[in-house]
Design a protein around this nucleic acid. Structure first.
Lengths: 204, 186
DNA sequence: ACGTTACTTTTCAAAGC
DNA sequence: GCTTTAAAAAGTAACGT
């Protein structure tokens, strides 16, 4: 009986330690990503729910913690790309994506597809672009999405192209390379999306 | 009436069978020209047929997986060729080994562009996986027939997971109906 | 800025780690 | 869970020229 008692304490302690580790990892990654405290709290709640529903079995703590943070950013409307999240995590991007899909499904998060417009303020400020460029980029995204150009396209690439186009239209030109670097997409992707968006806007 | 169902093309058929006899894959690798066998990598020996084009994974237990064929007939033809090759090598093969179709992959065209964002919400986020950052297709799991459908912005689709030839047809009719009911079919 | 090649997703069996 | 095999869809990426 004493052994059972000790094992319970050991298990409880191990569980506590794992939880503490996960929460501190969420905190560390959130800081590195520069997301507000409210998002870390949402991520913590998602992690605890995954823990309570036994979704961590067979998965790494770090993987679930990272996915919880990725999901929290989306839920709070300030998404980070999987690339960005993977940069501050020690879990490979592929595993983060797979784990995210799993916990999202099991917890019924039902998150809508990421809206490219949600990347505009962050990318634009990283490029020192004005409020005017941001408004223009947002308009370009709305118009081209309405014309059906968004289906299947990566939200970051779509946002990057719109920002590039808007910077040209507002005489605050940034090079494709500069925009590509902050959005972490290639210049080829920006070029391809840019061409379609310009046509959708009726320019040419 | 030409509809999306008429555009269905089988792209790949996966089937399993067995010759009812254990095999020495090392010896078989030497006797079968073109056979690939890397036991450190994978326990199966890979053998490809040219006509019909297919690939077979042959295991020590005598069980065989055939994949890459474009029709169920092609699966039978390809496996027939393999059975004959084994018999030529004096390996006893059951007279008519049972062949089980495990998966059929088909493609089709709905004929209209699709708004995948609207479709994700319309079909129900709980049954849909749509992460364009990772893959351009929307993944929809259908219960009856039990298949998985990948839908693309172009209106082209992939139906996989079915075991019967008509699963794809039933699935296409069903998905068209659901998309149409949402008013999302051009 | 081309073209080519290759990777992402889904499905399924096989034997073994 | 992974390893291998095949195939489609469309987007993105990384090569070399």
């Amino acid at each position: 009986r004493l052994r059972k008692w000790q094992e319970r304490i050991r298990t409880k302690d191990a569980g506590e330690r794992n939880l503490q580790f996960a929460l501190s990892e969420i905190d560390r990654m959130a800081s590195a990503l520069g997301v507000p405290r409210s998002v870390r709290e949402v991520a913590s709640v998602i992690y605890r729910r995954a823990l309570n529903e036994d979704l961590i079995r067979g998965r790494s703590i770090e993987g679930v913690a990272t996915s919880a943070l990725y999901a929290a950013c989306r839920q709070e409307g300030i998404p980070r790309s999987l690339d960005e999240v993977a940069e501050v995590s020690r879990v490979p991007q592929k595993e983060i994506g797979r784990t995210y899909r799993y916990i999202s499904q099991e917890l019924g998060l039902e998150l809508k597809p990421v809206d490219p417009k949600q990347f505009v303020p962050r990318f634009a400020s990283a490029l020192d672009l004005s409020e005017e460029v941001q408004a223009k980029a947002t308009e370009i995204i709305d118009v081209s999405a309405e014309q059906g150009l968004l289906s299947g396209k990566s939200p970051t690439g779509f946002a990057a192209a719109a920002i590039y186009a808007a910077s040209l239209l507002c005489n605050e030109k940034k090079t494709q390379r500069e925009v590509a670097d902050v959005a972490q997409v290639t210049e080829v992707t920006i070029r391809n999306r840019y061409q379609e968006q310009i046509e959708a806007m009726g320019f040419r | 009436m030409s509809g999306p169902a008429d555009s269905i093309e089988i792209q790949n058929v996966v089937a399993s069978t067995g010759i009812g006899q254990e095999l020495d894959l090392e010896a078989l690798a030497d006797d079968l020209p073109g056979a690939d066998f890397n036991p450190d990598n994978f326990p199966g020996l890979v053998y490809r047929t040219q006509d019909p084009k297919a690939a077979a994974l042959i295991f020590r237990s005598g069980k065989i997986v055939c994949t890459g064929a474009k029709s169920i007939d092609d699966v039978h033809d390809a496996l027939g060729i393999i059975f004959d090759k084994l018999r030529e090598l004096k390996i006893p093969v059951d007279d008519e080994p049972e062949i089980t179709v495990q998966n059929i992959v088909s493609s089709a065209d709905l004929g209209h562009n699709l708004n995948l964002n609207a479709l994700a919400i319309g079909l129900g986020l709980e049954d849909v996986e749509y992460e364009p950052e990772q893959f351009p297709g929307l993944v929809y799991r259908m219960d009856e027939p039990k298949v998985v459908i990948l839908l693309f912005g172009s209106g082209k689709i992939v139906i996989t997971g079915g075991k019967r030839t008509d699963d794809a047809e039933t699935a296409v009719e069903e998905i068209v109906e659901r998309i149409d009911a949402l008013g999302l079919l051009g």
